[in-house]
């Protein structure tokens, strides 16, 4: 299949449900000529079912990104499928209920630590674990972000984690840039995924409506434009861009 990712081999994390942004990235990447390997956590069998809905084959590798042992042998396990990688999608975030939903002032360190370890540090640990496989120069690491320049109702410690993710991406861009590896984030507008359902309890609530009204381009809460941006960042069409946060939010971040 021909497309802007022809010949590229990508590792995609975060396929959790059919509505996951990562699922759409995997679909579009395959449609555009890439080969992909998916990581799965916690339900490998669910991801294997979802693979059958993709337009091409995709091996599945189990990965709990907080488990040092699994990270330690990740390159070997991925290497059984692909000898080299051109890109990695980081689409991993988790916060315990006590760290979300308006509990900010009472959250204790163990819950904050879990949030930061899973949602912030994992960009570092995943990137470093896969460094031996990443093509140098020319690889692209892409992470999924939610604008953390302001506070959001109920997003709480996940917002703090996203601020850290943004900084982590800039430092990875700094340290990996000399090897020709780009690191960028895509800050998506709100999408109705399982992750989002943890802090927006009512589907179709004011949060989405407000975003849609604010965004100059409007906002349909559709994963496809976000996936397109990720695919573009994996392609050779952003060769001099790193440490960047690309907003795919209908333009909402740009207006007051």
């Amino acid at each position: 299949m021909n497309g802007i990712l022809t010949g590229k081999r990508l590792l995609i994390t975060g396929v959790l449900t059919p509505s996951s942004i990562a699922f759409h990235v995997a679909r579009l990447a395959l449609e555009n000529g890439a080969e992909v390997v998916l990581t799965a956590f916690p339900r490998v069998s669910l991801v294997e079912r979802l693979v059958r809905r993709l337009p091409g084959p995709a091996p599945v590798v189990g990965l709990d990104v907080t488990d040092p042992e699994q990270l330690g042998n990740l390159a070997d396990r991925v290497g059984e499928h692909f000898g080299e990688l051109d890109g990695v999608l980081h689409s991993i975030a988790y916060a315990p209920p006590a760290a979300l939903g308006g509990n900010f002032t009472t959250t204790t360190w163990p819950d904050v630590a879990t949030t930061l370890r899973t949602s912030t540090y994992s960009l570092h640990s995943l990137s470093i674990a896969l460094l031996p496989l990443l093509r140098k120069p020319g690889s692209s690491i892409v992470g999924l972000d939610f604008d953390s320049s302001v506070s959001w109702s109920e997003y709480d410690w996940m917002g703090v984690a996203k601020s850290g993710l943004e900084s982590c991406a800039r430092y990875l861009a700094y340290y990996l840039g000399p090897q020709g590896i780009r690191v960028n984030l895509v800050a998506a507008g709100p999408i109705r995924t399982m992750a989002a359902s943890e802090f927006t309890k009512e589907p179709g609530d004011d949060f989405y409506a407000t975003w849609q009204a604010k965004a100059p381009l409007g906002w349909e809460a559709d994963a496809d434009p976000v996936a397109r941006a990720c695919v573009a960042l994996f392609s050779d069409w952003f060769p001099a861009t790193t440490g960047e946060i690309l907003h795919v939010d209908g333009g909402a971040h740009a207006v007051g």
């Binding site: 959790l16 339900r43 669910l46 079912r49 979802l50 809905r53 399982m194």
Partner: peptide, 14 residues
């Protein structure tokens, strides 16, 4: 759990 429910849903759809 919610992810098992998702998997049941996906399996039913298929």
């Amino acid at each position: 759990d919610s992810l098992s429910m998702v998997e049941i849903g996906v399996a039913v759809e298929d």
